[in-house]
């Protein structure tokens, strides 16, 4: 994951504060940010917008086989979270008791370490979600 250092920095507004995009022409909201509104294309006007930090689990899985960089986390839960504004995103779950993880469970964004690995000393931070 060492090669992801530029990625960590480039995506800080999204990863740290859940900043997405809103198209002023059609009102649609996107996360992560987009340069072009797929609905309006050239007519679109994209501005930043903060996403709600609460939502619910839309689907989830417990991962038992991980790519390099995530071995120490195993097993861990991932989910598609549906935010209160209807936007869906992919995230790991954190600090969530197994028996509370189910479709429809309310969740809240938390700020966590994502990976720390490969001897290069790079620690990537970002959002995870926690079952309330």
């Amino acid at each position: 994951m060492g090669e992801n250092l530029p990625l960590v920095w480039r995506k800080m507004p999204e990863r740290y504060r859940l900043v997405g995009s809103k198209c002023l022409n059609c009102g649609r909201i996107y996360f992560p940010r987009r340069k072009i509104c797929p609905h309006c294309r050239r007519k679109g006007k994209i501005v930043d917008i903060k996403m709600p930090e609460k939502g619910k689990i839309y689907s989830f899985s417990e991962v038992h086989s991980a790519p390099p960089g995530f071995e120490n986390e195993l097993p861990y839960f991932v989910a598609i979270v549906e935010l209160q504004n209807g936007i869906k995103l992919f995230s790991m779950l954190a600090d969530s008791p197994r028996n509370k993880i189910r479709i429809g469970a309310p969740v809240k964004m938390v700020f966590r370490k994502i990976t720390e690995n490969d001897g290069k000393g790079i620690i990537a931070y970002g959002y995870k979600f926690k079952v309330l």
Binding site: E73, L89, F90
Partner: peptide, 14 residues
């Protein structure tokens, strides 16, 4: 999606 799935711990099976 490398930036928004893989980075966040996704595997293809997941």
């Amino acid at each position: 999606d490398q930036e928004w799935e893989l980075f966040n711990g996704a595997t293809f099976p997941s």
